[in-house]
Amino acid sequence: MRFVDILAKSTKQIKHHNMFKIESKDVHLHYGAFHALKGINMSIEKNTVTALIGPSGCGKSTFLRLFNRMNDLIDDIKIEGQCLLDGKDIYSKDVKIDDLRKRVGMVFQKPNPFPKTIFENVAYGLRVNGITHKSFIEERVERSLKQAALWDEVKDKLKKSAMALSGGQQQRLCIARALAIEPSVLLMDEPASALDPISTAKIEELIYELKSDFTIIIVTHNMQQAGRISDTTAFFYLGELVEIDSTKKIFTNPNDTRTQNYITGRFG
């Protein structure tokens, strides 16, 4: 074999190995006696948006929270199987939860800025991670606010309370806050469900733009939202992953009749 071929082959292997940013392998999750996730297998590529859809209680939010280990906060929980981030099991003993959460940011359903100033909200993640360098923090705050398309609206009132912002602005602030610690994955749990249509549209455009820098997983109850912003859609039902495919495929010709019935509004 020629050297070039070997080189080509090895880079291909490396590429293959790095292809999935996030993987779950046969993940089961129990809350006490309740079997919430039943053997989920999923592979998510880097720089894509994956939408998790399904009726309430289908396990999609629980699945999302596996990846920054927010489920650990719940008592009496049992997790089996593997959750991999960049090929490494995030539930292994040598992974520190706070380190993991620096790499996997999260945005919640309800905008939940801290009752602090706008600046301090964005700087929070940096401060709790021990960064004290003033100009570094300032720079990062500005960049994060710009990334979250909020800078122009708040640059003159960084010292004002975040509580004075509108709901949509608060949610973008929460996104900026999550971006400030430079995660590579962004988990979003119905980030626009508490917002008006205009704010929702802004958040959706933002997600579409953030895709180039982050790998995004989003839980949504809004089917149209999944269609508009995601590359891949996964349909959960009763704790099972019924179907995962490109969003175009799911929305035009899903394989499973349950998926079809759900996205056409015939049940769920």
Binding site: Q224, G227, R228, T247, K248, F251, T252
Partner: peptide, 9 residues
């Protein structure tokens, strides 16, 4: 067209 209709309503 089909995709745009399905995804963007």
């Amino acid at each position: 067209c089909e995709n745009i209709l399905a995804l963007f309503n």
